[in-house]
């Protein structure tokens, strides 16, 4: 989706006062995830810092975008929110309940958090007819008698723009876009309030991406489901999200209203990320900033201080010495950068 980014087209934040009064649907505080990596039997175990002290919250019915390069830990955040991965530290609260353990309440709440996966082929069991995959949450959570499940799946099929006669197909008999529609239908079958969409369109043809995004937007409008939208593609995020968090190497470097962040990015990394999006008109390139130099450092051995400093054009001595604190900017965005100390 190499559309030019125009902050004006981003959906306006829904009524601010109203939203602020409401408790967040999802509240993440100081979330940490480290993986233990061991190469060979006698090698020393090393810690891979995938996610480092991330805090964010998603309000009911909101689309919150989590953006960053591949390998920055955004998928890991999504998997922890859905419970597929256990946090090393920090808390995930959903509707005020801390999502740890297997208590009945936590299990019940897990149903309301569903996921749309990046690869719509790998996320469907090749041996099941697609309607059986969509019906899985209905059976798994005993949402209705088995006899009624097929009718419910038919409803979901029409909601996501599939024909009823496609219910008995196998995944390999559908196109990529159709398979992703099946994946969306399955997420909706659980009757969720929050959907973690992990790069839902990046595996699809560009021509199909817009269709799936429009479908997700339509569902958002009809059912009021909140999205935690994970993507590496700013142009996708610009059109769908109200708020955004930019991740770099396991940390959130900038977060705020999507319009504010895209119109006036504060953090050097956000600026360079925006600059790396291809523009249609040459005039747009006048104030172009170079894209980030070099490769993403290894999360096995993250840089000291600010994790972005080896690639930053504005790096100062203090950047490698100490990690910057989060500061609130005049436009409402919160940024972690020593430039604003």
């Amino acid at each position: 989706m190499n559309k030019p980014i125009n902050p004006e087209t981003a959906p306006p934040p829904a009524d601010d006062d109203d939203q602020r009064a409401e408790a967040p649907l999802l509240q993440i505080d100081d979330l940490v995830k480290q993986f233990t990596v061991r190469r060979g039997l006698f090698a020393r175990a090393r810690k891979l810092s995938a996610v480092n002290e991330i805090s964010l919250n998603v309000r009911p019915g909101e689309t919150f975008a989590l953006i960053g390069e591949s390998g920055c830990g955004k998928t890991t955040v999504g998997r922890m929110v859905t419970g597929l991965e256990k946090p090393t530290a920090g808390t995930i609260r959903y509707r005020g309940t801390e999502m740890v353990g297997r208590s009945q309440r936590v299990t019940d709440l897990r149903r309301e958090i569903q996921m749309i996966f990046q690869d719509p082929y790998a996320s469907l069991n090749p041996r099941l007819r697609v309607w059986e995959s969509v019906a899985e949450p209905i059976f798994g959570f005993r949402l209705m008698p088995k006899s009624a499940a097929r009718g419910r799946v038919e409803e979901l099929f029409s909601l996501v723009g599939l024909r009823p006669d496609q219910m008995d197909r196998f995944p390999h008999e559908l196109s990529g876009g159709q398979r992703q529609r099946v994946g969306i239908a399955r997420a909706l079958a659980a009757d969720p309030k929050l959907i973690v969409a992990d790069e839902p369109v990046s595996a699809l043809d560009v021509s199909i991406q817009a269709q799936i995004l429009n479908l997700m937007r339509k569902i958002h409008g009809q059912l009021g489901i909140a999205y935690l939208f994970i993507s590496h593609d700013l142009s996708v995020v610009a059109h769908i999200s109200t708020r955004i968090a930019v991740m770099y190497l396991g940390e959130i470097v900038e977060t705020g209203e999507t319009r504010a962040v895209l119109r006036n990015p504060q953090h050097p990394y956000t600026q360079e990320l925006l600059a790396s999006v291809p523009r249609r008109r040459v005039s747009d390139r006048s104030e172009r900033v170079r894209p980030p130099k070099g490769d993403l450092p290894s999360p096995l051995d993250p840089p000291s201080g600010c994790r972005f400093h080896p690639r930053c054009r504005h790096a100062m001595p203090e950047c490698s010495a100490s990690a910057p604190a989060q500061r609130e900017m005049p436009n409402g965005a919160r940024v972690r950068c020593h430039l604003y100390d």
């Binding site: 059976f139 959570f141 659980a190």
Partner: peptide
Amino acid sequence: DAARLAGI
């Protein structure tokens, strides 16, 4: 993973 999220 999807099946786990589906409560299976």
